[in-house]
Nucleic acid binder design. Sequence first.
DNA 1: AGACTATATCAATATATTTTGATATAGTCA
DNA 2: TGACTATATCAAAATATATTGATATAGTCT
Lengths: 105, 105
Amino acid sequence: MQPKCCRNKGTTDGLASTVEFLKVIAEENRLKILCMLREGDRCVCDIWQYLGLPQNLASHHLKVLKDFGLITARKDGLKVYYSINKKAMSMFNSSLNEFLLSYEK
Amino acid sequence: MQPKCCRNKGTTDGLASTVEFLKVIAEENRLKILCMLREGDRCVCDIWQYLGLPQNLASHHLKVLKDFGLITARKDGLKVYYSINKKAMSMFNSSLNEFLLSYEK
DNA sequence: AGACTATATCAATATATTTTGATATAGTCA
DNA sequence: TGACTATATCAAAATATATTGATATAGTCT
């Protein structure tokens, strides 16, 4: 008998995309970026300076977050400001909870 | 001005250990294992058969989960039964939420 | 246009993680 | 004891990911 979590296609797909989400956020700099952006939008130069990362590495991590849809970019002159995508974050967060939280309360 | 998430040692440590937690669960088979174990204890042979994994690979993933304290093992004759450590799971889950959830409600 | 700034991209390298295959350990049962 | 079963361990190979260094792009300002 298959356990619930692997029983039907819907659940299996949900689990796979949750794992992708986890891979994206399971990196210290990326989690810090998400965490920073909760306080408000930041340009790339703020981000790499805060995190003590080389500029290109910060850009790389921002791209990973953006490609996955967790943040969005807005260009203003030379600078690019990133913002958190609250909707996506809360969506992934709740599907994560479905897999993590105990059945009983 | 440092963003909140990186400002003091406590938060930084919390973030680092949350990232470790995320790395542990950000793997499809391991998330499935955690998910299965919510339904009750399982022996290794149940687990590798359910997941369609070779026995040694299942053992490997179980070790990762166990070393991190998310599951525990109990030996019964030849078999080893794994159970979820609800306390650890809910602890890590709430520290994760501290970093992920938006400040405003 | 030319010098400058902010960001992105790309290829190469370094590092970490997963997977495989072979073997070891430890308990059971005849 | 010997054959068997369940699980764990270990080294090697395969794969994925992060990091670096160099360079490109695109906007600003004089």
